[in-house]
């Protein structure tokens, strides 16, 4: 079954951006991340494929500035998913190629014209320390 047009167009937009972008469905299933995000996350999307929220929220081992692990429910994209509101946070990840990166992540829920919840999208910004 085809995704809603808002999700299709969001993926299409992400494909034309230099901003790393990460798109999930209403259940948190990873649908797509773009080439700039592939660089940050250390693996091509074709290699990771779709991934459940339980996996992507832990596989990058997010930690805060003090080195404490960030719980999945505290991640901006999880907040956008579960509370259906925008969220923004700075934290560190361990990319899949073992590179540590300092990111600022902004996530928003995607609501259709009738308010239906369709998923969420996160934009990553790498911070220079």
């Amino acid at each position: 079954m085809a995704h809603p047009i808002q999700i299709i167009l969001t993926r299409q937009l992400a494909g034309y951006l230099s901003v790393p972008t990460f798109l999930v469905d209403p259940n948190g299933k990873l649908l797509f991340y773009n080439e700039p995000a592939e660089i940050l996350l250390g693996r091509r999307f074709d290699e990771t494929g779709v991934m459940p929220a339980e996996e992507w929220s832990t596989v990058f081992a997010p930690i805060d500035a003090e080195g404490r692990p960030i719980q999945p429910e505290e991640l901006p994209l999880m907040i956008a998913l579960h509370k259906q509101r925008p969220a923004c946070q700075r934290f560190f990840i361990r990319a899949l190629n073992d590179v540590k990166r300092h990111l600022e992540v902004s996530a928003i829920p995607i609501h259709g014209v009738q308010g239906e919840f369709l998923g969420a999208v996160a934009l990553f910004w790498e911070l220079s320390d």
Partner: peptide, 19 residues
């Protein structure tokens, strides 16, 4: 055609109007 990727049609779930 906005759904095309490098000139190729993607999987059906990514094509507007497929269903």
């Amino acid at each position: 055609a906005l759904c095309l990727r490098r000139g190729q049609w993607p999987g059906r779930e990514w094509v507007s109007g497929f269903d």
